[in-house]
Design a protein around this nucleic acid. Structure first.
Length: 471
DNA sequence: GTAGGGTTAG
């Protein structure tokens, strides 16, 4: 074997790590005739981290600390550890790594700070993340992206959009990853105008419209009610993967285009990628939203028997809702009882609302018990139950539900809706008067309501939930 | 040797 220096050993080891041949890399690493430097150690540590083997990764790191090679971990080593903790959501270990960095005064460069920001955002410690971000003297695009991504993933969508503007004000140019996150925020906010601007920007910059960006666009357009634009992006995208198909199937399903949604699914079964469990959430919702009962039954059995997918509570939830609405209450009830997963209050609530529609008090009684004794009773369902009792004059039961709600301290955050007009997001709460044009808005609302009456609309007060004191 | 991305019921 020809003599090799440290540097060429490093590149051989990292080559094997890069191509996923971690065992080969490890064997060579053990037999190396020259001193193993920090690059070599870090390379192998990273290899274990990337394949999700935290135990081996940590073992190797500890081995390094006591090895005769006498190397100390540097910033890159810590980035590898943090990156593994973050992708495997092991935040306990991540915090330990962070403490190690502090104690050993490992220098914080931009990359290490960014890795720490990512970790702290995922744990929900926004303050620490911000302190780190402020401390970066040379904020990179990736640092901004980590911050924006973290905000989007925590559901802080308006703030994420604000960060996006702030980033541009600092003359940092966004890339695909920034745009995916901004589009995701737009989808959640219903911010069609900003979403469109992003789409136009992508076209103008000639940025590669990869399948991830396409998915984010399709999702944004569907959730903002622009199904035609969603379809256009979907059709134009080559190399469609399962997530893109799922997004399109769900988008069509939401908007009541059950048949079209199923057609996309059929196309996927024929020429596309394999379906997964998310696909069937879309397929079953398509059947549900379009009242395709028989099709729903067929697809559910297709999922279990042909595709060998194990149904989750979400799939059962779709089926229970589908069957319940159509009046097959006993079948829906039986399905909940025979599931191999524990029912949550949501699935019970769905069946309960079907009981109300079909006025099945006996079943509502049974479900009521299940909801009230469950871990997470939902206030909405308690009110629903109480209204069902009220509708048949069972006032004692109404009082019992009300007492339980008080005792358990069940609360519900107030509902909120918002709309974006000319890039400004307007937010509304029930019966609020916060908006500056509140007076005009209520006037128009009254006008529309009157117009509906003129056109012959008669509201069905039967289904309006009664507000009960203390609930 | 090193940081960041899309789809999930009611």
């Amino acid at each position: 074997m020809p003599e090799r220096d440290e540097v060429s050993w490093n590149s051989i080891i990292s080559g094997y790590v890069g191509s996923g041949e971690i065992e080969k890399a490890r064997d060579l690493f053990e037999e190396m005739p020259v001193r193993r430097n920090i690059v070599c150690w870090t390379s192998l540590i990273n290899g274990y981290g990337k394949e999700g083997n935290l135990n081996e990764m940590l073992g190797l790191f500890l081995q390094m600390l006591v090895s005769v090679d006498d190397v100390g971990p540097n910033s890159a080593t810590m980035v590898c550890l943090l990156s593994a903790c973050s992708s495997l959501s092991d935040f306990k270990l991540g915090k330990l790594v962070s403490i190690f960095i502090d104690v050993n005064e490992i220098p914080l460069n931009t990359i290490l700070s960014t890795a720490l920001i990512d970790m702290y955002l995922k744990c929900g410690d926004l303050e620490k993340a911000w302190r780190l971000f402020d401390g970066i003297s040379c904020k990179s695009l990736v640092s901004w992206n980590a911050l924006i991504t973290g905000y989007v993933q925590r559901g802080l969508l308006e703030e994420a959009v604000r960060l996006f503007y702030l980033m541009q004000a600092e003359s940092v140019k966004p890339n695909e990853i920034t745009m995916v996150n901004v589009l995701s925020a737009c989808a959640g906010l219903g911010a069609l105008e900003l979403g469109r601007e992003v789409h136009i920007y992508l076209g103008r910059k000639g940025l590669d419209l990869n399948v991830i960006l396409a998915t984010a666009l399709v999702d944004m357009y569907s959730k903002c009610g622009r199904l035609i634009d969603a379809c256009l992006v979907f059709v134009k995208t080559t190399n469609k993967d399962v997530a893109l198909f799922n997004t399109m199937i769900l988008g069509l399903a939401y908007h009541g285009h059950g048949r079209d949604s199923l057609a996309v699914f059929a196309e996927m079964e024929k020429n596309g990628p394999d379906a997964n469990d998310v696909t069937f959430i879309g397929v079953l919702s398509a059947c549900n939203h379009s009242g395709l009962i028989e099709e729903g039954r067929v697809q559910f059995s297709n999922m279990v028997k042909k595709q060998k997918l194990i149904p989750k509570v979400e799939h059962y939830s779709c089926m229970v809702d589908l069957l319940g609405r159509a009046g097959y209450l006993d079948e829906a009830f039986e399905m909940i009882q025979n599931m191999e997963v524990p029912p949550d209050s949501i699935i019970w609530g769905s069946l309960l609302s079907s009981c109300r529609i079909h006025r099945n008090i006996e079943l509502a009684d049974k479900i009521g018990e299940a909801i009230l004794s469950s871990q997470d009773p939902n206030l909405g369902f308690c009110i629903l139950l109480s209204n069902i009792y009220a509708s048949v004059g069972r006032w004692k039961d109404v009082a019992r539900v009300r007492r339980l709600v008080k005792e358990k301290g069940i609360k519900k955050p107030s509902g909120c809706s918002w709309i974006e007009v000319d890039g400004v997001i307007h937010r509304f709460l029930v019966e609020d008067s916060i908006h500056l044009q509140s007076k005009e808005i209520y006037e128009i609302h009254e006008f529309v309501t009157n117009q509906l009456k003129v056109e012959g609309y008669v509201p069905n007060f039967d289904f309006v939930l009664k507000n009960i004191d203390g609930m």
